[in-house]
Design a binder for these strands. Structure first.
Lengths: 361, 361
DNA sequence: CGGTAAACCGTAAACGTTTACCAAGAAGCA
DNA sequence: TGCTTCTTGGTAAACGTTTACGGTTTACCG
């Protein structure tokens, strides 16, 4: 507010300006700014006053250069354009700032080349830790992180390495619940649209689905398992493949919600109804899932949970709590029943029309 | 690849290591890394070789500290969770990396306090320029950017200031096209669901809508103009308000696509059909718009265009091409007709059922 | 009242680059 | 051959912080 501090110099003000205005040394200013407790209260007050008056902002790069800590956390995701990730990013950032960290974002678009670029940026900007929320990473990149002593956390099991750790997701709970729900409704042939092959978590989801089928006493029809890529287009295309089949499943589970929305669209174009003609279950429970028409039954995986656990994991290792290699934290999943699941057509006995109306929330 | 370089030192390698391995001075290494042309080809080759062998990555913060350029562009958006922004961000980043820049992301969530924090981060990290793609910013923050000599670009007209500039969006073209389309179908009372009041671009969209109505010879019914907030929930709530009205519009235009999707949901819940009971037009044309059920008629505003123009604007001013205050570049909008618009119920003469089927793409 | 310990603060040396300036060698010209 | 002019590489001084170290003051105890 005080403007008398001079002729509004265009030159940026630094710690020396603050020091001289407060009548102390730069070391003291630094200590005050870093909340070092051993500085006298009156000096501290003078410093803060000077900081206010001069609108002083410390230079992050100088700080990072000498201290060796950037207070930056890297976050590498698959595709920022898939709504699941913005939700994740938001939570991750929230968790990070709570501890005084900022985030550096990277999006791989499922390309190894881009992943390498992202990793390189993270290294160059000297992030203190990295969360990798997409497919696996080449070993030589992990070597680099290790060489620079930066901890890494993955989603889903990753190769055991000195500085890397992972978050375990209990896919089984939710997915199993999903097929049980379908079986309970009378479905006997259930299709699955997977994610991109390279994405580890997608592979796990598919394997878990297969396992659930087995447990439920159904056997998998290979033709009903088709590969998607976690996008709207991929879901649409995959469903079209399924529709081209002679014999078709009566229900479809999808590796993520975007795929399911693509499926809904394919069905709409084919003039088919959900859940009358096909039952549909997604995965992730993005906010949008509540808003599709009809609202999507899906498996919820809390991205808040994931984000929090990821940064906690990273930070605890930064504090030297070590351990870390094994992941203690388990992320839960569970089924959210909305309106894309119903009895299969062929199984319908009497009350055919009423199945659409069951608005479970 | 070559591992003989020593016992895999955990210490990070710096420019000195490269220099000594290549048998040159650090100045030469620096020159090589920065592609300064006056360095001898054979030395240059030796340096690159050493860089390869040592996996050397320059320290960005040291670089930035001394050169005064961070090669970082700030991007402040409203809400990362609104799919329009990820698409924007992706394009912005693409454009930035093309010129060797990286981006620092900030999301305000429509809160002035958060905006201030974002701006502060940008300043601290010493971004070379900032694009502000959300509501206006407090003057004192602009002062800070000016004091630090960092150029700013806004979307939509902003106060004229030495270092700030803006992108002009031709809202009128698309929105006018939208109401003309509706009028052509026979609609006479058209409602509008706006964005958050504080968002300048939202205010402009609403004003433009009103202007288009006037031009079309219709008069605005105040009760049909309701405030949303550019989210799914906001759209749903706003539509519920409209549905509670005694007399209702036959068509609704929305300030963005998320709002329109919320509206579709509200209509679905009320067991009303689009476009039979209500025609609906969105704004933005996010990728998802093609996938709603039915697919959304909307006004396209190319975020690729916006992103490219924003970084070009920033970079040209960084290069000192100056000028800049006035925005030469105009971003166009145009209507994309899909399946949420049709004749109003009351105006339907004979072929009522067929209107749904007109699949224009 | 003298001496020791504790509490604070300032000086200066890092941190890893870029870059202005200078020196040395090569090449061209008389 | 000797002098000038390029060319090219190296030396060293920044950049804005943090922090180890040492020095000065104050407090406390005998």
């Amino acid at each position: 507010m005080v403007k008398k501090s001079g002729p509004l110099r265009t030159a940026k003000i630094d710690i020396r300006d603050v020091a001289s205005r407060a009548g102390v040394s730069i070391a003291t200013v630094s200590r005050v700014m870093n909340h070092v407790p051993t500085v006298d209260a009156v000096l501290s007050a003078r410093v803060w006053e000077a900081v206010e008056e001069l609108d002083y902002l410390p230079n992050t790069q100088a700080r990072a250069l000498v201290s060796g800590k950037s207070r930056l956390l890297g976050l590498i995701v698959s595709e920022i354009t898939n709504p699941f990730f913005p939700e994740l990013i938001q939570e991750f950032e929230r968790a990070a700032v709570k501890w005084g960290y900022e985030i550096l974002l990277g999006s791989t678009n499922y390309e190894a080349k881009t992943m390498e670029l992202c990793a390189r940026r993270m290294l160059e900007r000297k992030v203190d830790g990295v969360a990798i929320m997409t497919f696996g990473i080449d070993d030589f990149l992990l070597d680099r992180f290790e060489a620079d002593n930066v901890p890494v956390v993955f989603i889903d099991p990753a190769p055991a390495r000195p500085l890397s750790s992972f978050l375990a997701v209990d896919y089984y709970a939710g997915i199993h619940e999903g097929v049980e729900h379908l079986v309970g409704l009378g479905h006997k042939s259930i299709g699955f649209i997977s994610g991109p092959r390279r994405l580890r978590s997608a592979a796990t989801r598919k394997a878990t689905f297969l396992e659930s089928l087995r447990v439920a006493g159904l056997k998998a029809e290979p033709a009903f398992i088709v590969e998607g890529n976690h996008t709207l287009d991929g879901g649409r295309d995959a469903m079209q493949k399924l529709l081209a089949l002679r014999k078709q499943p009566t229900a479809i589970m999808c590796s993520n919600d975007m795929t399911a929305i693509g499926v809904q669209h394919a069905l709409f174009e084919a003039n088919l109804k959900v859940p009358d003609d096909f039952s549909l279950i997604g995965f992730d429970d993005i906010h949008l899932a509540e808003y599709t028409i009809p609202p999507l039954t899906t498996v919820r995986m809390s991205c808040e949970d994931i984000a929090q656990k990821a940064v906690e994991n990273l930070l605890s290792r930064l504090r030297g709590d070590a351990g870390g290699v094994a992941a203690a934290s388990l992320v839960m999943t569970r089924l959210i029943v909305r309106q894309t699941t119903g009895k299969p057509k062929r199984a319908v006995r009497g009350a055919a029309a009423s199945s659409t109306k069951s608005k479970k929330r």
